[in-house]
Nucleic acid binder design. Structure first.
Lengths: 202, 202
DNA sequence: TTTTGATTTGACCAGTTGGTCAAAGCGACG
DNA sequence: CGTCGCTTTGACCAACTGGTCAAATCAAAA
């Protein structure tokens, strides 16, 4: 196991390669479906060499989840209480949809974890995620009270943004199967824009 | 292996027990995460006995998917071209949401399959599901042309119904973690009703 | 060049997995 | 009761899994 101080150039490179390969495999197969061998070969390392950088399969998985979590929640974090309400919310939707298009693996990684009952990040959800959502829900409630957007249940509004946008990443295969030739991300932005505009315009 | 003709009372009972146990396990763990041992013990049979009724783990999984598929698509099938458009669509939403509440395991079973790239029901999606959706999309397009609902992209409308309703089954843990005490299915029906009413009212 | 620590590997291990098989048990019908 | 086909099981297996370890190799500072 490499020491904790000042990672080598090689350490950085190999850790990055492992994380990327792990994202590929875990997001496609879930935790139990993924194998260390597959991650190792995809990252160009032997299995013992991979386990020289990460203590265990679970350690890789946890490192991945942790690394992606902040990135994943950033758009919600950026929701500005002092901004124009509809503009803020539509911007949030747009950014989440872009993330589904540009980072579908990250989306599916979380999807797997949560569908299985969030056995490894459950506590984080009930603590950090809940706190963040509650905070933003309060902002939305304020906007509603001020008559700046139409009245809706704030929490469910956020759920609907998550589900509508992440659907295009998590269920990509289904969406494309049903659409045939058409690119999902051609019409989706306008559709969601329209949906939330009609929902939220007072 | 039991013969194909006229299943015994015992065959019926055991097959049913296996299917139910398999639904429990597959929906929680996905295909690769599930083990035959777990399904066997949950259904009260020994592993060799289970494999006397189903040729393989995959055979159980496929039988499950096939059995649930019709049930799963029934609500969309029932969308009546001759009904009142908004009423039909809101009814579809309501029924899908009830299914998420009453049959979350079935929802998660499909979710697992599709997130992993639908390796086993991909063809069914591109053929049967696509055909059904295209048919109903045409109905919706007709309603829009007649000015009976507001203009929206029909396919994406259907995607949004799927994602919004199934989210409450597939991501149940997250939803409950964020909501805390509150029951998701208390406010969800009204929320979705409002959302689609505002979206679709001309 | 030598040394020292970082890096890599082949061989190996114990536990789990899906699946097999011959033999034993059971139930209904004559 | 006896028989015959359905049902159940214990013992077993080969492949795979996550993980270990001692030894070999490599890189860079001295």
């Amino acid at each position: 196991m490499p020491k904790d101080r000042t990672p080598t150039r090689i350490q950085k490179k190999n850790r990055a390669a492992i994380m990327d390969a792990a994202l590929e495999v875990f997001s496609a197969q879930g935790f139990r479906g993924a194998t260390v061998d597959e991650i190792a070969s995809l990252s160009g390392l032997s299995k013992p060499n991979l386990l020289y950088y990460f203590a265990s399969k679970e350690a890789i998985y946890l490192a991945l989840l942790e690394r992606q979590l902040d990135t994943w929640l950033a758009p919600l974090h950026d929701l500005d209480p002092d901004g124009e309400p509809l503009e803020q919310l539509l911007g949030y939707v747009r950014r989440k949809l872009e993330m589904s298009r540009d980072f579908p693996r990250e989306s599916r990684l979380f999807a797997h974890e949560i569908i299985q009952g969030a056995p490894r990040i459950g506590p984080v959800l009930s603590r950090d995620l809940k706190a963040l959502v509650d905070e933003k829900a309060a902002v939305i409630r304020g906007w509603i009270a001020a008559g700046r957007i139409a009245p809706v249940h704030p929490h469910h509004l956020i759920f609907s943004i998550w589900s509508l946008t992440q659907h295009y990443a998590d269920f990509d295969v289904q969406v494309r199967a049903v659409l045939g030739q058409e690119d999902p991300f051609e019409a989706a932005p306008d559709y969601l824009d329209t949906l939330f505009t009609r929902l939220l315009t007072p």
